[in-house]
Design a protein around this nucleic acid. Structure first.
Length: 108
DNA sequence: GCAGTGACCTGCA
DNA sequence: TTGCAGGCCACTG
């Protein structure tokens, strides 16, 4: 399962610097998937069993909303990790999302 | 091999 | 401006 689409998504997610976040659509475009952002989210479902572990908490939707926070255990862990990295989270969504947003296309 | 599912995004009313 | 619906691709049963 190393050359799978999952590994590609994990690779981008792991490239996200500390204190920064990215969106599913951005990763999808970085992989050339385009509008297949759903696949990115689906791949993240395996982030919990991925090794090394993937900072899925740095990946949010295009609105900066922590949509996948309920997939964490506990769900509040996602916000905790984001705040721990200096990211401001308000109402399960990133406050200065555009400020902490990290574009993989610019790094790649 | 077929069908369903999924942590989304974009467009239109 | 807000809300709803459709579409996209890959993996599992």
């Amino acid at each position: 399962m190393k050359d799978s689409f999952y590994d590609q998504v994990f690779e981008i997610a792991r490239l996200v610097p500390k204190g920064r976040v990215t969106s599913y659509g951005a990763i999808a475009k970085a992989l050339g998937a385009g509008g297949s952002a759903r696949m990115v989210g689906y791949a993240m479902s395996n982030a919990g069993i991925a090794h090394p572990k993937v900072p899925a908490h740095r990946v949010v939707n295009s609105s900066g909303l922590l949509t996948g926070k309920f997939h964490f255990s506990p769900p509040e862990l996602m916000q905790q990790l984001l705040e721990q990295e200096g990211i401001v989270v308000e109402n399960d969504k990133i406050k200065n999302f555009k400020t902490v947003f990290w574009n993989p296309l610019e790094e790649l």
